[in-house]
Design a protein around this nucleic acid. Structure first.
Lengths: 233, 233
DNA sequence: ATTCTACACGAACATACGTTCTGTGTCAAC
DNA sequence: GTTGACACAGAACGTATGTTCGTGTAGAAT
């Protein structure tokens, strides 16, 4: 009953390479004869022979009787290959809507604030977001200045926001106090009839707002991204 | 001489949709007869007729005499389709190598890359990394505890590291001082024969180390990610 | 009306391509 | 030795699939 598991011979590997190369370069899978030519195998039956083995090992999937009817499932290294659609749908592009600073400024995307390319956006893997968030319309803001260091948000950070008027306890939200024109990022808690705004930095004291109506929630922070690799264009 | 340019009839659109659907769902392009069936066209010649037109309009590319020898170039909307290779390479999966706390524990990505689940990892768009970084082997660490708040890194944050022994000025690095078993994240500056370690929080004072040899660089911080959307599995 | 063009159908044709069969050589186990 | 599993080659076969051709219709141009 002893089955050799990981045993990929040179021909197996070569064929997998050909498969991957061909698919990526040509756009559709190769025929058996083409595989043979690329891999240095003269007989179609031998190629077929190995394709069957690769299928049994779970590297490819074959549709019999169909020309070029095969698809890669795993890499030569055994890594799973995401199909095309997956990768397309696995990424979410979030528009860079503007900048925020001490006096917060959220520019709607239509403003021709052209410091960023029109297609300049933040690409985030869907897996890094909750399903709800990925489905909703998000926007990204670049933080300018040190005014949010008590929220653990640094100059240059990218905050990804979700527009909302309501906040639930424990969420980090962008809020503006009535009478102030300054927006800050704080953890939001509604308790005992008042609102507690908790800085992310645990060494700092919370702010208690007795009148909940004087707190205006502008959005919820979904993610903060700090890129350290200095590649400013 | 008037040529209708953008004129995509319903059949054109339908065929493009079929093409896209089939490719993404099945993994290779459809045959002409399959297109016909899906698009409600009974004759192969009609499908061929429209495929020729779509090629002339630049939506697809065809390889004559080859079964399923076609690939999508543009979307129904006219948007360019990224080839397979692009989508495959657009995302980088970074293994979650461990956790760091006050008593830092950094496990460099050893050869046993198979310890964590395949879905245990951080997916980052290649566009969010520099080319150099994306090519190098990165690993991610989850921060545990508040010991890095002076580096603007919070409990629960994900730091993406690049293994290196050398640091250049201005980079945020994980460093350990000789004689200490604690690792911290600081901005690194080598100047006038000494090393200056600058906390990210600008209100905090730098640390000057007179002997550069007592500073051990363990890695460079490439990115910090803070997920606020509470998605505990 | 006639002609031309775009669109459509279905059948016939040619071949690209997957499958199968026979045969050969090697190497271990018996 | 014999057997059997394995790797490989080449040819023959069947069919899936792209191509071509003859025909037809509807509408615009002549």
């Amino acid at each position: 009953m002893a089955r050799k598991k990981q045993g990929l011979s040179d021909r197996h590997k070569k064929i997998l390479e050909v498969l991957e190369d061909y698919q990526t370069n040509v756009g559709y899978p190769p025929s058996i004869r083409e595989i043979g030519k690329q891999a240095g195998i003269s007989s179609t039956s031998v190629v077929n022979y190995y394709l069957d083995q690769l299928e049994e090992k779970g590297f490819i999937e074959r549709d019999r009787k169909v020309s070029r009817g095969m698809r890669l499932l795993k890499d030569v290294t055994g890594q799973l290959i995401d199909a095309v659609e997956n990768t397309l749908e696995n990424m979410v592009r979030i528009p860079l809507a503007g900048r925020i600073g001490a006096g917060i400024v959220i520019q709607p995307p239509d403003t021709d604030f052209n410091l960023y390319d029109p297609d300049e956006g933040i690409e985030v893997a869907r897996s890094m977001l909750s399903e709800r968030d990925a489905a909703s319309s998000l926007y990204a803001l670049e933080v300018q200045g040190d005014s949010m260091i008590d929220a653990m948000v640094d100059d240059g950070d990218i905050v990804i926001m979700k527009h909302t008027q309501e906040a639930r306890n424990g969420e980090m939200v962008a809020i503006r106090l009535k009478g102030s024109d300054e927006t800050t990022l704080k953890y939001f808690y509604r308790e005992n009839g008042h609102v507690r705004l908790q800085p992310a930095n645990p060494t700092m004291q919370p702010i208690i707002i007795e009148d909940p109506n004087s707190v205006e929630v502008q959005g919820k922070v979904v993610m903060v991204i700090r890129q350290m690799d200095a590649t400013p264009i």
